[in-house]
């Protein structure tokens, strides 16, 4: 009999606690975003992978060295690096980027391309309105008319003892 009433009142107390929590949720601010209306003020998330672009600086230069690592890392062949070999003035052979095609329709936005890119030439933006009327428009050429960034004659870094040990390893 004692446990009967104990269970009864503790049950009622627990239910009231549950109702208090739901009421606190009910009077909280809504989390819904009304997308087309709040297009200008919509919250953007820094790490959201919306669109792949070339990191082009103010001199219209990109950093791509046409190594093709991104293309190799892409799990579903969404990337196509078109390059050609040219001979520079000092007689060296060098790979130069001709076109960089990104097929949005087969991209899974996994981000393996950006993480494997050694010179950090490609990056993600928050742009997400990708709808087009023609499927062929989903294949995007990212390079545009940008040129490869001019190699600065950077001085070789002074060797350090710690670096030496790393090299030996």
């Amino acid at each position: 009999m004692k446990t009967y009433f104990k269970n009864l009142f503790s049950g009622i107390w627990n239910l009231l606690q549950g109702m208090r929590i739901t009421m606190r949720n009910a009077i909280r601010k809504n989390v819904t975003e009304c997308y087309p209306e709040d297009r200008e003020t919509a919250r953007q998330f820094e790490r959201f992978r919306g669109e792949l672009i070339f990191d082009i600086n103010e001199n219209n230069e990109h950093k791509c060295i046409a190594c093709g690592l991104c293309q190799m890392n892409c799990p579903n062949q969404s990337l196509q690096v078109v390059s050609k070999m040219v001979e520079t003035e000092d007689g060296k052979k060098k790979k130069v980027l001709e076109a960089y095609n990104w097929d949005l329709s087969s991209c899974t936005f996994c981000g393996l391309c950006t993480s494997s890119c050694a010179p950090k030439a490609i990056k993600w933006t928050n742009f997400f309105e990708h709808a087009v009327f023609d499927k062929s428009k989903l294949v995007k050429e990212l390079k545009g008319d940008s040129k490869p960034v001019e190699k600065k004659a950077a001085p070789a870094p002074a060797p350090k003892k710690s670096d030496d040990s790393q090299v030996q390893q």
Binding site: T22, N25, A26, I27, R28, K29, N30, V31, T32, C34
Partner: peptide, 13 residues
């Protein structure tokens, strides 16, 4: 509407 409130949504609008 009330259901939406309890789930922090707006509901039909």
């Amino acid at each position: 509407k009330i259901c939406a409130d309890f789930q922090c949504r707006i509901g039909p609008n």
